[in-house]
């Protein structure tokens, strides 16, 4: 985890102008068009296979250089052994200019300098990462929307102070420092995804029994309060 927070800090240092890139969900439809930049080497989606580059299914939460059967560059393996993992923040840096993150990478790609483009592309790629049916299986920055929530509920502005109090119930299990052994990290989670996921547990769409119980008794306002508090931490 230490590596991960160092990388998060690096992300801020490298892209000072664009704000919290990891938070920016982007437009997946536009991202699909942008994927044409990647198509020559990468496949994604059902039946995707390794080509010049590894396939990109389940990319979020994957450890760098860990996709079995693919031969990575030495530099990528070195970054991997240093703990590099693919989350929204590290991917942002990598596709802005791959050599910024892994200097000897074999990925010959000039990068996407525009933060909007990157966010859109990542929004598209997120669709092919772990099905977020349950927190333990999915990377928090990868979770897409698995069901819809009434826009009125999404629009509720939460009380962050109440959210801070409520969050103390989360930290009995989820570590505030982002540690994720056995129980997933919930830091760096996009606010809207958080709200949707909590409602998915509350409405018993997601399976995890502890989370169903915890979310089940949170009111819409309380979920919004938690989101407001967690959101305030990322700034």
């Amino acid at each position: 985890m230490r590596t991960r927070s160092r990388l998060a800090a690096l992300a801020l240092a490298l892209c000072p102008a664009q704000g919290a890139g990891a938070q920016d969900l982007g437009d997946a439809a536009r991202g699909e068009t942008l994927f044409r930049h990647c198509k020559a080497c990468h496949q994604v989606g059902q039946g995707a296979r390794d080509r010049v580059g590894p396939h990109l299914n389940n990319l979020f939460g994957r450890r760098a250089g860990a996709h079995e059967g693919f031969r990575y560059s030495k530099d990528m393996m070195r970054a991997a052994s240093g703990g590099l993992e693919w989350h929204a923040d590290t991917l942002h840096i990598y596709i802005e200019n791959p050599k910024n993150l892994v200097s000897g990478t074999r990925m010959s790609f000039d990068g996407l300098p525009d933060a909007r483009d990157r966010a859109d592309l990542l929004a598209y790629l997120r669709r092919f990462s772990a099905d977020p049916s349950d927190i333990p299986e999915a990377d928090p920055t990868a979770t897409g929307t698995d069901h819809t929530v009434d826009p009125e509920i999404l629009a509720i502005v939460g009380d962050p102070e109440y959210g801070e109090y409520l969050s103390s119930e989360c930290t009995t299990c989820h570590r505030a420092d982002g540690g994720d052994s056995g129980i997933p990290s919930i830091t760096l989670w996009p606010e809207e995804d958080f709200v949707i996921a909590m409602h998915a547990y509350k409405n018993q769409y997601r399976a995890h029994p502890v989370m169903r119980m915890i979310a089940g008794r949170l009111s819409d306002d309380e979920i919004a309060a938690l989101a407001a508090y967690f959101g305030s931490l990322d700034q």
């Binding site: 930290t171 570590r175 052994s181 056995g182 129980i183």
Partner: peptide
Amino acid sequence: KTTYQESLGWYDGITTD
């Protein structure tokens, strides 16, 4: 097994808390 691993995560969580 997932349940057991979850308990390991909980242990780290609660002792940090």
